[in-house]
């Protein structure tokens, strides 16, 4: 009995250690992503951005975090207190738990489960609850309108995201994320499935409520959307959750389309670079595109957003599923179903 308990404790400690190894760097990445966003957009708009706190403004995120923590947490009088405080926590937790299945390198994954991609899809579809609960619990018009917009938007774009994922799955024959990356050893799926890659990336923009689809925030008409009533740490959790979600979605795009930890070509100077470094580089590239899009595109109108999601992306990705499976069947290239 003693021995069994001991092995459980050791295993538990090992798992907790792995989680810390992922969450720690992730939080630092989130902090520097906020800085990168302000700097990159600053340069694109011929400004300097925050450059005063520390060298190149390196300590700016920590100054911001300190400021937010020192502020007062305000509970609106008409708010539903339990749901109001639970919503930001949920957003942040969901942004973190999804990382359990993302493979950073060969075998470098916390939980290598059979249905990894479905798990990712499930967690990303839950993100809408943080938003809708926050909007309802705030008991405020602007917050509620923002939440309703966001719920409709996220549910709509999930549909086309799901179909794009099916496209990739047809080419792989497994739901396991490691298997998906390994299937791209010859060629990244971004090349043969280029249109799907673009549809997926635009859908992730909508799914994370980023510009040009940041209607849930819509500061010109809704003040700040669903988190108007939030202050201090509860606001910070929403903020961190949004950026962690951006990194997560970039990681998901990397795994599905850009070959995860694999080098672009399996030749000498490229294949000695460790896998996790390739993964991080690809995620950083996608994050830069996120910021680039925000700096260069105006916000969509709401009916245009819905039209794009339902009338263009959905039929397009559906047709592409038929095309992909038809092509694979015709060329007799359908993947053998792996054990995973």
């Amino acid at each position: 009995m003693d021995l069994i308990m001991n092995s459980y404790v050791i295993e538990l400690a090992w798992i907790v250690g792995k989680i810390m190894l992922v969450v720690g760097p992730l939080l630092i990445a989130v902090a520097y992503l906020t800085l990168a966003e302000r700097r990159v957009i600053g340069f694109m708009q011929l400004r300097k951005g925050p450059n005063v706190v520390g060298p190149f403004g390196m300590f700016q995120p920590f100054a911001d975090a300190l400021k937010l923590m020192a502020k007062e947490t305000i509970l609106p009088a008409g708010a539903n207190k339990v749901v109001f405080m639970f919503a930001p926590m949920l957003t942040f937790i969901l942004a973190l738990v999804a990382w359990a299945v993302i493979p950073f390198g060969e075998g470098l994954v916390i939980a290598d489960i059979n249905v990894g991609i479905l798990y990712l899809f499930a967690i990303s579809s839950l993100g809408v609850y943080g938003v809708i609960m926050a909007g309802w619990a705030s008991n405020s018009k602007y917050a509620f309108l923002g939440a309703l917009r966001s719920a409709a938007q996220m549910v709509s774009y999930e549909v086309s995201m799901g179909l794009v994922i099916i496209n990739v799955l047809i080419c792989v024959g497994s739901l396991n994320l490691t298997a998906i990356v390994e299937a791209q050893r010859g060629m990244w799926f971004a090349l043969p499935l280029l249109p799907m890659f673009i549809v997926f990336f635009i859908s992730t923009l909508a799914e994370t409520n980023r510009a040009p689809f940041d209607l849930p925030e819509g500061e010109s008409e809704l003040v700040a959307g669903y988190f108007v009533e939030y202050s201090s740490m509860s606001f910070a959790l929403f903020f961190l959750g949004e950026y962690a979600n951006m990194i997560l979605m970039s990681g998901m795009t990397t795994v599905l389309f850009l070959g995860g930890w694999l080098p672009p070509f399996d030749i000498w100077p490229l294949n000695i670079v460790p896998g996790p470094l390739w993964f991080i580089l690809k995620v950083m590239l996608l994050l830069f595109v996120f910021l680039w899009v925000r700096a260069t595109t105006p916000r969509y109108r709401y009916d245009q957003l819905m039209r794009l999601g339902w009338k263009i992306f959905l039929p397009f990705s559906l047709i592409w599923v038929v095309l992909t499976s038809g092509f694979l069947l015709w060329t007799d290239n359908l993947p053998a179903v792996m054990a995973g």
Binding site: N114, L118, F121, A122, V128, Y129, I132, F144, A151, L175
Partner: peptide
């Protein structure tokens, strides 16, 4: 697989619409 489908379909889509209507 069924567990994930339950979360994706019922929690991720159906319950969102319930919540939408009820609110």
């Amino acid at each position: 697989f069924i567990a994930m489908l339950l979360v994706v379909v019922y929690v991720g889509a159906v319950a969102v619409l319930f919540l939408f209507v009820v609110m």
